[in-house]
């Protein structure tokens, strides 16, 4: 049974690339591109895995994650955070608020697939 991945990211080209990679590897992918209503989308779609960008229009990825971890339904979802800012304090922040994995852009295709596989097995 294929895992359901929700990708929340605002850059269309990146959405296209990641969707392509994941569907090719057997994941079921849905996407969303802003921060305002991200939480509602997550609640509605109940994904198995979540990929969350930090810099989103409307609301930052950190805020969304922190909120998600506070909710009963969102407690157990494994989350991969993506950032383009490449600062260690972003990584620490992500760990502290409960991201499962953290990845800095740009990443290699193999790297992201591998990470997701590990997360879905855990």
């Amino acid at each position: 049974m294929s895992k359901h991945v929700l990708l929340i990211e605002d850059e269309p080209n990146i959405i296209e690339a990641v969707s392509f990679l994941l569907s090719r590897d057997g994941y079921k992918v849905s996407t969303h591109s802003n921060g305002h209503d991200a939480l509602e989308v997550i609640e509605a779609k109940q994904p198995d895995l979540l990929i969350l960008d930090v810099m989103l229009p409307g609301r930052s990825g950190f805020d969304i994650l922190a909120d998600l971890r506070g909710r009963e339904t969102g407690e157990g979802i494994p989350v991969l955070m993506l950032t383009a800012r490449g600062q260690t304090k972003d990584r620490e922040m992500a760990q502290r608020i409960g991201a499962t994995r953290f990845m800095t852009k740009p990443f290699s295709n193999a790297e992201i697939i591998e990470t997701l596989n590990e997360m879905s097995l855990a």
Partner: peptide, 15 residues
Amino acid sequence: ISHELRTPMTSIRSF
């Protein structure tokens, strides 16, 4: 600036 540089580079690398 990091974000601005890395974002296009992510797409470029991926594709």
